[in-house]
Nucleic acid binder design. Structure first.
Lengths: 198, 198
DNA sequence: GGCGTTCTAGCACAACCGTGCTGCCAAGAT
DNA sequence: ATCTTGGCAGCACGGTTGTGCTAGAACGCC
């Protein structure tokens, strides 16, 4: 049985997904169409549709890959002896401070804004939210060195809301504006968690 | 000089704007077109375009009216003797706890997500952000009873991020889910502000 | 070399989009 | 009664969208 030429489908998918991200960042989610994405990726529509038969599949994969990338980056955070600095380094990855994470958050927001029209993306978004929530729980556990209870649950929710709110504000200001205040705020919050623990 | 029949343009504009909101909430920002809005409002495209010649003007007015409505609702908050309860009542208006405020926040988010494509809406969004920021400053001043300085600025930013993060999380959960935890979290944060002041 | 399969390239179609434009209707001032 | 003008209804046009479908090109295996 002959096995004809095959391209690296995963690489091709990633190439197309990053084209999607670029368009979302530069022109908004509304500008994402099979044609604009194919153009941006430098392929023809036929090739794109050979890998992603429908637009929904294209967006779904793009969203999923984005979550994977973010997860990988967070897991790759170098351990630190200082708990506050370690937690801060992890949480910083959730803020749109660099082009990559900025794109990730922008895509995340686009998913929320378009969720009524794209129900298949809701579960991806919810999965990502649960992951971040779990991360906040772990951060609280690390800093307070206590098991989970009602107060630590509230603290985790507080931290989660704070991080996402900071992300929202960083996104609405220009990419090159001063953003040291956000890190400082985050570090102060994390430090106060250790201070409050007995 | 003859003066022919005139409709209440402001009422007509508000009618069309609320149709825009409904579509954003139910079908996402991507589903907002002159035709879908005219349908939803029960008028024909020609009539809509008589009031809003272009789609951009329609969206711009809808966004501006939304900010006005929110501002009015906040200003109408009854004063309370308890500073924490008063601040909490005001901040609750910024959370998507009821259909109206839910729609407002959803529209706000849609504006952010589509800002690359609709630059004219950016300044409206920025104006709304500044208003909320100012509100947070006033809340901090009220609770700590101290003038603005670096620490109160940080506290206001903290509060602002927390409120917007909470709003984001409330939006991603079903409209009828339990949301008492958000109010509790907010009240605790506001109470801790008074506690910290000397 | 020939075959078979994957990939590429693109046409076609129906639907939808924003917007320019043209009549028609109704109502109030004269 | 007539005239003037704001509002209503809708057609038309060029563009874009998602997707079905077909024909050819490129390549690994026999």
């Amino acid at each position: 049985m002959p096995v004809p030429r095959t391209i690296d489908r995963d690489a091709r998918k990633a190439q197309l997904a990053s084209a999607v991200w670029r368009i979302i960042v530069e022109r908004g989610i509304g500008a994402v169409s099979v044609r604009s994405v194919a153009d941006e990726a430098g392929v023809v529509v036929g090739s794109l549709r050979h890998v992603f038969p429908t637009r929904a599949e294209l967006l779904e994969f793009s969203a999923r890959l984005m979550v994977e990338r973010a997860t990988a980056r967070i897991l790759a955070t170098p351990r630190s002896d200082d708990p506050v600095e370690f937690a801060c380094a992890i949480m910083r990855h959730l803020l749109p401070l660099e082009p990559d994470s900025r794109a990730e958050f922008e895509v995340n927001l686009a998913l929320i804004a378009e969720s009524p029209a794209l129900p298949s993306l809701v579960e991806i978004r919810d999965y990502a939210t649960r992951e971040v929530e779990e991360l906040c729980h772990q951060a609280v556990e690390l800093l307070t060195a206590r098991p989970r209870d009602d107060t630590s649950l509230a603290a985790a929710r507080h931290l989660h809301a704070l991080v996402d709110g900071l992300a929202l504000h960083l996104l609405t200001q220009p990419a090159d504006a001063d953003s040291t205040w956000a890190t400082a705020l985050l570090r102060a919050e994390l430090a106060s968690l250790t201070a409050r623990s007995p």
